[in-house]
Structure formats: C-alpha cells, structure tokens
C-alpha cells in the first residue's frame, strides 16, 4: 500500500478510536483486553492488534459504501 494512503488510513482509524469512551476496554479474544489509548498506540505502531483495528474499520466502511448496513 502507498505510504501516504497507509498513514491517512491510520489517522482515520485513530480518529475513530478516539471517540471510544476512555473508561471502556476492548476484548480481542486470546490477544487480550486493551484500553482505548493502548489500541491507538498499537495502530500507530502497526502491530498485529493495530492492523486488526485497521481491518475492522476498512471492512466496516466498505460495508457502509456497499449499503450492506
């Protein structure tokens, strides 16, 4: 993926995660439980959990575009 596009997607995902309440956590199966700020950090780092967050966001946006939701 083009580096600029990748960075833009990361920014979008981070902006979405920033809306999540700070007092919530997310369970991502065997990978563990993460706070909003931990998830944002993982997206910035591009680790497997960060990539999962990006995948969820992109798949969701595609489904909105296709009118599935």
């Amino acid at each position: 993926m083009n580096k600029d596009i990748e960075e833009q997607i990361k920014k979008t995902v981070i902006a979405r995660l920033e809306v999540l309440p700070q007092d919530k956590k997310m369970s991502i199966g065997a990978s563990g439980e993460f706070s909003r700020d931990e998830l944002i950090e993982k997206v910035k780092l591009g680790d497997p959990i960060g990539k999962k967050m990006i995948q969820i966001e992109l798949d969701f946006l595609r489904s909105l575009k296709k009118g599935i939701i």
Binding site: L20, D23, K24, K25, M26, S27, I28, G29, S31, K52, I56
Partner: peptide, 10 residues
C-alpha cells in the same frame, strides 16, 4: 475471525 467486545472495567 476474532470475536471482539467492548466492556466497562468498572
């Protein structure tokens, strides 16, 4: 794929 859910630790 992963089953995810959001919860309130409190």
């Amino acid at each position: 794929d992963d089953f995810v859910f959001v919860y309130s630790p409190d």
